[in-house]
Write a protein that binds this DNA or RNA. Structure first.
Lengths: 203, 203
DNA sequence: ATGTACACGTGACCC
DNA sequence: TGGGTCACGTGTACA
């Protein structure tokens, strides 16, 4: 360093700092610039990485020729517009499917063990969803229907699936209150296990 | 133009072109640069426009403060990652819903007019899908069940929805052949329109 | 002061 | 050759 040749006392503090500032200004600037450009480069890489995954996720963004698999990367803007299209499409599709089948997506398959479950639907007052899995038999559905008809309950919706000799039924019942709920449950329980010829209700 | 002062023949074609090249080089460069930068600017705007629509489409990308609706635009990279997440999520959701509800997505609402339609399911042999819309009444479900029970038909799956005093039922019936199909149809037709107390089958 | 994010113009590359 | 896209470094603003 050239400056060290001068006696320290010769230079005022302010002058020294001024010199040091002067001296470091150039290299500081350069260093800062380097840091800056590197940071920017990292940012760019981050973004471009996302573009790449987006490319892989979305269909028909990677053009595949017949012979050569040439991953002709598409335009960034095109990627975005394609993405937007896909998102809106999927959203529409999902919501459509979701409300077209209502709660029906939960209706899976009959349980191996006999089950009976009642639960209130929180989205509508006085609506109860009854799920029951049991052995299938001729007239089961009829029995259930008659049992429900004997009560003031009104069946609004029902889904039932039979597979491998067992059935799972899901009934949405309207107009059952606290006492009626217990009654409904016991009634269904009886229906589930008694042979149909024992059920003789009049409607 | 200065060049027009010289007699045309005085300047060789190559020299002329050289001069013109020389002269236009500076301004040509500038003009080209301007064009270039403008084009680049347009490109940037296009991309950013897509980012904006992406922002509006995706939820929770526009932060809303309690008092002020400050549309703090999120980081580009974050937009992309959020988009990617959404896309994958929606895709999973859509496909899951799609194969979970099988044919159930077709079950809409009861028709205003009474309808009865039978059709064979092409995906499984001997499986018939019966769709009927009619006035709702107590015991309708029971009647249908008994009517089907009186035949050799086996109900594999049923979906029913009641709204506004009308019901639509879709029954998947197994084990009905050509003759049985007509019988099934007429039976259901009867069930649809006759009051329940007229149906007195034994199972 | 330090980092982070964006827009800009420019050189390079490819149809 | 020009029109399009990209990566890069830089200037600038905001926290």
């Amino acid at each position: 360093m050239v400056r060290s040749n001068f006696p320290p006392s010769f230079l005022s503090q302010t002058y020294k700092s001024s010199i040091s500032k002067q001296r470091s200004k150039a290299e500081n600037k350069l260093l800062a610039a380097k840091k800056h450009s590197e940071a920017e480069r990292r940012r760019r890489m981050r973004i471009n990485g996302q573009y790449d995954t987006l490319r892989t996720i979305l269909p028909n963004l990677i053009k595949v020729s017949i012979i050569i698999i040439d991953k002709k990367k598409k335009d960034k803007a095109s990627i975005l517009v394609e993405t937007i299209k896909q998102v809106t499409e999927l959203k529409k599709k999902a919501s459509k499917l979701e409300d077209s089948n209502g709660t029906s997506k939960e209706v899976k398959f009959p349980s191996g063990a006999d089950r009976l479950n009642l639960e209130k639907c929180n989205d509508e007052e006085g609506l109860v969803k009854a799920t029951l899995s049991c052995e299938d038999r001729p007239g089961l559905m009829s029995s259930i229907a008659r049992a429900l008809g004997s009560m003031k309950a009104k069946v609004v919706k029902v889904e039932m699936v039979t597979v491998g000799g067992r059935t799972k039924s899901v009934l949405w019942v309207q107009g059952v209150e606290n006492e009626g709920l217990r009654m409904l449950k016991s009634t269904l329980k009886v229906v589930m296990h008694k042979p149909s010829f024992k059920m003789r209700f009049t409607q």
